[in-house]
Structure formats: structure tokens, C-alpha cells
Nucleic acid binder design. Structure first.
Length: 235
DNA sequence: TAGGCCATCTGGTCCT
DNA sequence: AGGACCAGATGGCCTA
């Protein structure tokens, strides 16, 4: 028992705890490394909370007293996942996040890099937009496209105004923040009597040849291929 | 050095 | 039972 306590204390004081967290006595690491990026084992370890739990379990007497419950049954806590299942779950989670990131990457390619000083600087520096920035710009861009659909005669004005109202990115992002957007902006994204939802569907965005002319010109103006847009819609 | 962003792990919950 | 999804926690990296 003392050795277990010592072991737990060492675990807490000697980060990283990769040995504890990743070494599988059944050697299931092969599965993990086939999917995960390499050498992550060195970077990640059990959280202190997990370590505490491990040590608590280790220090708990073999025959831990059963909970004293009167009539109702204690809710059975499911047993923790086996190491193998934990690894497979982690791998699935990484894969899921990878797909999300791929979708973000696609979205970044579709969003025009507008005339914002900071965004332009980020582009020049080859820095990619952050996730939250990407989402906010996408919202702004969709809003402008929706407005353009309502008034195809003033397309260029919509696109230009969408990204040039603000002199800096902070202003732009604040405006395109979902919580700070004025209701009027949101309404352009929602179905309304003036802009019912079905009116969006007659155009098959999956087929570039059916893209409206104003979308053609807008995407080409921003150096984007039509396929970028259709790819984005199809993914 | 603090703060922002991100990847990853983890446990809980819901769904099939 | 197992997978998908989610949110919290954590640590690494980078920049102002």
C-alpha cells in the first residue's frame, strides 16, 4: 500500500505522466499511433484530476464500504472504459475533430479575404484565420449574399459593403458576431415573407454551371474558383 | 509573461 | 454495447 501511495505521489510530482497514461500492457499502442499524429505521447498525459482519481482508487481498501443508501438504489456508475476502448474512443474523437478542421479549411478557402487591414496582414503573413474568425466572416458573407439575392441589381455594392464598412477586423468581427449582429442582419439569413426559405433552393449550387452570374463574378473577383463554392456546399 | 488559440484526453449523455 | 457528440480540463505554442 505504501508503495502505491508513493507511486501516486511520484505521478503527481513528476509530470509528464506519459508512462502511466499511454503504456498499454497489452500493447495496443499500435492502434493509436496508426491514427494519431506522431509523438503526441510525449506531449499529453493524465490530468492531475485523473491522477488523483487513480491514486484514490489505488489507495482505497480492497473491500470499500458499500454506499449506505436507504431505499433507492444508488445509480450505478458505469465502469471506466478499458484501455483499449479508451484508445479507440480517443482515436475516433481525433478523427471527428479532424473532419471538423477540414470543414473549417474548406470554409476558409471559400470566404473572400476582404479589404480589412488586419485580415489583409494576416493573409500577407500567410496566417490562417482562426476558427471563430472564420465563422464570423462566413456569417457576414452569407448575410451579404442573401442580401444580394434579394437585390441582384446591386450585387457589387453588397459584397463590397459587407467587408469594407469597418476599417479594422475588430469592428468587422464585432458586427458579424452572432450575438451582436442587429436583428435586421439576422433576418436576412432567416426565412421571411419577403425572402422565404424555398426561394433559395431553385438554384443548384452544387453545379457550378448553374451558379447565378453575380455569384460567378463575385467569386472570380476574389480569386476563387466556382468549384470552391460548390465544393463547400457539397461538403 | 499573460492571453489567445489549438489539439488532445476524458467522462457524460444520447442514440442506434 | 458501442459509437457520436459534447463540454470541461489541460498543456503546448505563439504573439504582443
Amino acid at each position: 500500500m505504501d508503495s502505491l501511495l508513493q507511486y501516486g505521489g511520484d505521478l503527481i510530482s513528476n509530470h509528464p505522466l506519459t508512462e502511466m497514461a499511454y503504456t498499454d500492457p497489452n500493447n495496443n499502442d499500435e492502434f493509436e499511433t496508426n491514427i494519431a499524429s506522431p509523438s503526441k505521447e510525449d506531449k499529453y498525459s493524465l490530468r492531475p484530476r485523473s491522477v488523483r482519481r487513480v491514486t484514490e482508487v489505488a489507495t482505497k481498501p480492497e473491500s470499500a464500504p458499500v454506499q449506505k443508501v436507504k431505499n433507492h438504489k444508488p445509480k450505478q456508475k458505469p465502469a471506466p472504459l478499458s484501455k483499449y476502448r479508451r484508445k479507440t474512443a480517443n482515436a475516433r474523437e481525433r478523427n471527428r475533430m479532424r473532419e471538423i478542421n477540414q470543414a473549417f479549411e474548406t470554409l476558409r478557402r471559400v470566404i473572400p479575404q476582404m479589404a480589412s487591414t488586419q485580415a489583409a496582414a494576416a493573409t500577407a503573413a500567410n496566417e490562417k484565420l482562426t476558427k471563430i474568425t472564420t465563422l464570423r466572416l462566413a456569417m457576414k458573407y452569407i448575410s451579404s449574399l442573401s442580401a444580394a439575392l434579394n437585390d441582384p441589381g446591386n450585387v457589387s455594392g453588397f459584397i463590397e459593403s459587407a467587408f469594407s464598412d469597418c476599417s479594422d477586423l475588430d469592428c468587422l468581427l464585432l458586427e458579424s458576431d452572432g450575438e451582436s449582429l442587429p436583428l435586421s442582419d439576422h433576418s436576412s439569413l432567416l426565412a421571411s415573407p419577403d425572402f422565404p426559405e424555398p426561394s433559395l433552393s431553385p438554384v443548384d449550387f452544387g453545379d457550378p454551371s448553374t451558379l447565378p452570374n453575380f455569384l460567378h463574378s463575385d467569386f472570380s473577383d476574389h480569386g476563387l474558383e466556382q468549384s470552391d463554392f460548390s465544393d463547400f456546399l457539397l461538403t
